[in-house]
Every structure is written in C-alpha cells, then in structure tokens.
Simulated scan of single mutants.
Amino acid sequence: MIRRLALGLALACAPLAAQAPDTLDGRIGTGLECVPFAREMSGLDLHGDAWTWWSQAAGRYAQGGAPRVGAVLVFKPHGPMRLGHVAVVSRIVSPSILMITHANWSRIGGVRGQVERDVTLVDVSDAHDWSAVRVWWRDRQGLGTTAYPVYGFIYGAHPSPKLATPSPDIVGAVIDSLGA
C-alpha cells in the first residue's frame, strides 16, 4: 500500500520536477558539478569526490537515515556513476518521497552541469530506510528504473536560504492527489 501511494505521489509531483533548470548563479550550462553545488547549498565544508563525503563527515557532522530540509544525500558509486553523487534535500513530501535540488545529473538540452530544483526522489529500499532511491528523470518524464544505493544524509548547520520552502499550493496539490 505504501509503495503504491509513494509511486502515485511521485507521479503527482511530476510537474514539479519539470521546472526550468538553472545554475547556482542563474547561468545555464556552465558545467557546474554536484560537489561544489551541494557544498554551497548545504554549508558543509567537505571536498573531493561525492562518494567520499560520507566518510569525511564522520565525526564532523551529524549523519543519519532520515531526510531533513538542507541535508545532503550521499549516493554510493553505482554503475557508470563511479564518483557517487550528492544532492540537497529541498522538500519533504511524505515519509517515502522527497524533493532534491542537485547539479549535473541530467543532460538538459544536451548539456550537463545544470541545476535541477525540486526533483522527485522515492525511497525504494526494502527496509524503508532510505538506503536505495529512484530519481525522477526529466527526459523521460518519470521515475528512473535504477535503484541507486545511498549512504544516508549529512546534516549541515546552515543550509542556504536559496533552498525553497514547500509552497502551500504544491503541498495542497500533492495531498489532494492522494485523496486525503
């Protein structure tokens, strides 16, 4: 039941993920990577490849398995994503669905290095512990089929005010789509 609701909600959130891309400073297609973008948006002072952030954060920042707005989700290396990936939680929609803002994930207009805001992310882990996620794909207008393994969330002290707070209109539309 929860999985069905989660996927239904993810589909309801589809228009949110299709917002216009931009970069940190508003320019399009500047080659922005996920690491400097996540560092700027989260306030975490971590460097190096995305997958190394989890071990670097140990003892320096709080870490866990629950999403919080402003937290950084650290993806493990998986398939062609050899360096991992980091994304910043921008909204929590439900216990198994959230929105992330990240850089350099999709090719938008054939160009990498752009920011996508409020991209739907669904917890697809067997234990419902955010250890595996599926990500909305702009080009396909749907959730991707790959379950990406993740380490968890790193909680920064001062997330950027550039992260949007949930719009009452968007939250209301999501709740209405569930018939709640």
Rank of each mutant, 00 (worst) to 15 (best):
A12V: 05
G156A: 02
W105V: 07
S106R: 05
W105N: 07
G31Y: 05
S106V: 11
P67G: 08
H102P: 11
A18H: 05
F75N: 08
S125P: 11
S167V: 11
T23P: 01
D45E: 15
Q114M: 13
V89K: 02
G59A: 13
V171I: 14
M41L: 15
T145Q: 13
P36N: 06
S177D: 02
M81L: 15
D25F: 10
V72M: 08
V72C: 07
P168Q: 00
S90G: 14
D139A: 13
A103Y: 07
Q141I: 12
T30F: 06
V119A: 05
L16W: 10
G70Q: 04
L16M: 13
P149H: 08
P166Y: 01
R60M: 08
D126T: 13
T120R: 00
V35Q: 15
V124E: 14
A180F: 07
V89Q: 06
V122D: 01
L9W: 02
I97N: 06
A127C: 02
A157M: 08
A103K: 02
W53C: 05
V74I: 14
Q114C: 10
I28G: 05
S106I: 06
A20M: 09
I100F: 04
S55K: 06
C13N: 13
R27F: 08
Y148C: 12
V119D: 02
P159R: 00
R3C: 01
G43I: 12
R82L: 12
E40Q: 14
S131A: 12
A6N: 03
P15F: 13
V124W: 10
P159T: 00
S177E: 02
T120M: 02
P161R: 14
H85Q: 14
G29P: 08
V133R: 09
R3Y: 00
V174K: 00
S131I: 10
G26A: 04
A103S: 15
S160E: 05
G144V: 11
L44C: 13
R39K: 15
H128G: 04
P36Y: 01
W136Y: 15
G109L: 07
A14K: 09
A103I: 03
G43L: 03
S131V: 09
R4W: 08
L32I: 12
A17P: 10
F153K: 01
T23C: 15
G156H: 04
A6I: 03
R134N: 05
A103M: 10
G43V: 13
G70D: 02
G59V: 10
M81T: 10
G142P: 00
D25P: 01
L5S: 09
S94I: 02
L7S: 07
L5G: 02
L121H: 04
A14Y: 00
G142N: 06
W105P: 03
P67C: 11
H128Y: 09
Y148S: 14
A62C: 04
G144A: 11
